[in-house]
């Protein structure tokens, strides 16, 4: 099954790298969507069919935690798994992400292997370790 993924990060470079890393990981992707903050993400979530949201924590306008809170209040969004991709690594902060409803978190810096394992687990896919491309095989598109 291919999954539609929304990447939320105020840095387009980081969004591009996350896209590239997911592609390199071998995770089964349908379409990518991108947003610069939580508000843009909610607009996309209202219009598109999405299976998974990957969001940064620290963003202007609306941060990752506020995005999760809004999604959990909205019927057609509350069951979409959200993964925090963040530099935040404190146990208390991670517990806060999970308590708010995040399915998991990925700490920057990350590897394609970490991304694949976490996303496959969350989406209930078998993780056979195959499909990892050599990093740099795919050029980024903007």
């Amino acid at each position: 099954m291919a999954f539609n993924v929304l990447i939320v990060d105020d840095s387009f470079s980081m969004r591009a790298v996350i896209k590239r890393t997911i592609k390199a990981s071998g995770f089964n992707i349908g379409k990518f969507f991108e947003a610069q903050n939580g508000i843009e993400a909610l607009n996309i979530l209202n219009e598109e069919w999405l299976d998974l949201v990957l969001t940064d924590y620290n963003m202007p306008e609306m941060d990752g935690l506020a995005l999760i809170t809004e999604m959990k209040k909205t019927e057609n969004m509350q069951d979409i798994p959200v993964v925090m991709i963040t530099t935040e690594g404190s146990k208390q902060r991670v517990a806060e992400f999970i308590a708010k409803g995040a399915a998991d978190y990925i700490k920057k810096p990350f590897t394609p292997e970490e991304i694949r394992q976490k996303l496959n687990r969350i989406m209930g896919e078998t993780d056979d370790g195959e499909g990892i491309l050599d990093d740099g095989d795919e050029e980024l598109d903007f």
């Binding site: 530099t87 935040e88 690594g89 700490k107 810096p109």
Partner: peptide, 9 residues
């Protein structure tokens, strides 16, 4: 951003 967050972790 990554170096700073990772330093505290």
């Amino acid at each position: 951003n990554m170096i700073a967050g990772n330093t505290f972790s």
